[in-house]
Write a protein that binds this DNA or RNA. Structure first.
Lengths: 180, 180
DNA sequence: GTCTATAGCCAGATAGAC
DNA sequence: GTCTATCTGGCTATAGAC
């Protein structure tokens, strides 16, 4: 028994949005890969925008959960270390990683999308939970960069490392960025 | 005596490409801001793509110069430190910084553009000059990240710091990423 | 749930007058 | 150098048959 059409649309759309960008990907392309016509997509999603919303929803929920957890904890080195691990854990889920990459690569194109705005705010709030307002700027930047490193690693080491090697190296560098 | 039209087109286009993205910016918008019609733009640039090429040319040249310099030097800690400074120096020129941001935010949309391909290759080659192939992955990633930090700082510390503070913090973190 | 057909819009680009 | 006018074509989205 195979997946339903709605899910397959999401998968194809996500892949194309990552490869080509949101604006450069037309509904015709998505429909063609799925083997249906454009019109069929409109049965499953009201607009192109709705596809984005459906893709992002999962990640927004998880990020808010992560933020709530961070807020419930004191700002200690242990908490930061654990936050890093929880974040890395989520990045291991392929679907979640895909959405992350999609968001990374289409920030400008989707800057007015409400869900994306919310996402950016949540991410910013999360980095803020890693420092006190009075901490030195370099320290705060370093800690923010730690989170960021986890998903920038693959792009930076383009081709030189396997996915696993890159992930391991990223965790090592990120951990070091948390140290004083 | 004011700037010529060609330069003004470049300035307006660059700003809009950064703010809204390449695809989301139409020639009509650029022309309207300039106070002319679309057709006038075609006297100065053969295509929309040509505007991009003209914007990127300056940076490609500087990056290749930087790469040539790096290749002429031994891979020592001092060389890496100096490379960082030279890179930071270029990022201080407003025009150059603008192009950098434009490229950062439109990588996906312009992935097939030959000049952009070249740019990415040069950037990758530059990070490779910072390590020996045999160095541990985490060390290589850390050094690549050092360069990257210099222009990611502003985005990560969104609103919390002034441009100067962010630049200073970025240099501090980047320097530390070079240390063993 | 998927089709055909098409409306409506706006993009990039060109021709030729001034 | 800049204009008006226009072409061509792809896009999102909808209507209505099956």
């Amino acid at each position: 028994m195979r997946e339903d059409t709605r899910t397959r649309i999401q998968e194809i759309a996500l892949r194309l949005f990552i490869e080509q960008g949101y604006e450069a990907t037309s509904l015709r392309e998505i429909a063609e890969e799925l083997g249906v016509t454009k019109a069929a997509l409109y049965y499953h999603f009201k607009t192109k925008d709705d596809i984005v919303t459906s893709l992002v929803d999962l990640r927004v929920a998880e990020m808010e959960e992560l933020l709530a957890w961070a807020k419930s904890r004191p700002k200690t080195p242990e908490m930061r270390r654990e936050l890093l691990e929880r974040y890395a854990e989520r990045l291991k889920q392929p679907r979640y990683l895909g959405v992350t990459r999609f968001l990374e690569r289409n920030q400008t194109a989707l800057r007015d999308h409400p869900k994306l705005r919310k996402m950016r705010e949540t991410m910013l709030a999360l980095t803020r939970e890693m420092s006190e307002p009075g901490d030195p700027p370099a320290e705060r930047l370093s800690r923010s960069l730690a989170l960021f490193t986890l998903h920038a690693a693959k792009r930076l080491m383009d081709g030189d490392l396997t996915e696993d090697e890159a992930g391991e190296a990223a965790m090592e560098v990120a951990t070091r960025l948390l140290e004083p």
